[in-house]
């Protein structure tokens, strides 16, 4: 089963326990999350949500850094916890982190990361690194540009592209990019975003793009999942979800993206959540406390995923 799928998350839940003994408290960081990525065609899948919505935890679960409390993850048809050929998996699924200045050790030359990766996953001829050169070329850098450089000597955009190039050495089929452009300057941001788009189109790499920036998500992704307090509240094609969001939370999120246009300013006031913890432990719909269209049922019963207009929406309005 699932042999034609690249990645399957089936009802995955991750519970973190805080404290011990009498003061133990539980937080469901990821709650019954399911989605699939096909082997072909490659796809950019966005996980969007506010901080504390559990999107980075999903990334950690897929990378195998954390084990799910319940539910299962299948990679190319194999369950992640009993994976034959862990090495193959590491080669195939590569992470890209948020802050390129923290990704690289400041005391280590950037090229060493490339050479180490290439040596441990291939057998390059002595003193030559063909894969390094190839992957640097893919991101628009040259070996001369990183030669003998320390991370502090490169710009954020360059370094993030280097970080992506390092991930490409192993020729992966899936990249997990956790907020890859949030630390990069506006004038350089699009160079990284465009690179993802090109990797998908030319190299056939699928990408899980984790972000809170809906504008870049709209720009590059095919499908999007909006997360709220560990749950997917709306999943569907990015054009549908962001052009015409159905879940009240997606609507709030979409209308809160500031437009770079002074003629298009916010005029309506919004209600703000005060306590995160309260939303996590809320019975019923997690958004009920802030929802402008809240009904009596939302307070006590958690909504299912309903299929509306080619997407899944977790809201009682669409029952």
């Amino acid at each position: 089963m699932n042999n034609d799928k690249l990645l399957v998350l089936d009802n995955v839940t991750k519970v973190f326990t805080k404290g011990q003994g009498f003061v133990k408290s539980k937080i469901e960081a990821v709650s019954r999350v399911s989605f699939e990525l096909e082997l072909q065609p490659p796809e950019i899948f966005t996980l969007a949500g506010e901080s504390g919505s559990g999107k980075s935890t999903v990334a950690k679960l897929i990378l195998g850094f954390e084990a799910p409390t319940s539910g299962s993850i299948y990679y190319k048809g194999q369950p992640l916890e009993h994976l034959k050929g862990k090495r193959e998996f590491i080669r195939d699924v590569q992470p890209i982190f948020q802050n390129p200045f923290e990704t690289f050790n400041p005391l280590k030359k950037v090229q060493n990361y490339f050479h180490d990766t290439e040596r441990s996953f291939g057998s390059p001829p002595r003193g030559q690194y063909p894969l390094t050169e190839r992957s640097l070329e893919l991101v628009g850098l040259t070996a001369a540009e990183i030669k003998d450089k320390y991370p502090s000597e490169m710009s954020g955009g360059q370094l993030q592209r280097a970080s992506i190039a390092r991930a490409l050495i192993t020729n992966p089929s899936l990249l997990i990019a956790d907020e890859p452009v949030s630390m990069i300057d506006a004038s350089l941001r699009m160079s990284v975003v465009n690179l993802f788009k090109r990797l998908k189109e030319e190299q056939g790499v699928s990408i899980i793009y984790i972000t809170h920036d809906l504008a870049t998500a709209y720009y590059i992704s095919d499908r999007i999942a909006i997360m709220l307090r560990g749950q997917f509240v709306e999943i569907g094609s990015v054009k549908k979800v962001l052009d015409n969001p159905l879940h009240p939370y997606s609507q709030l999120l979409q209308s809160s993206v500031p437009a770079p246009d002074p003629r298009d300013r916010w005029t309506e006031d919004i209600a703000l959540s005060d306590l995160e913890a309260r939303e996590y432990t809320r019975q019923g719909c997690k958004f009920a406390g802030r929802c402008p269209r809240v009904m009596e049922i939302c307070q006590r019963q958690e909504p299912e995923h309903y299929r509306v207009d080619d997407r899944l929406v977790k809201c009682h309005l669409y029952r």
Binding site: S187, M190, L242
Partner: peptide, 13 residues
């Protein structure tokens, strides 16, 4: 270089 929701025309940095 600023992308916008509702517009996915190519943008360069």
């Amino acid at each position: 270089s600023l992308p916008r929701v509702g517009d996915s025309s190519p943008r360069a940095s």
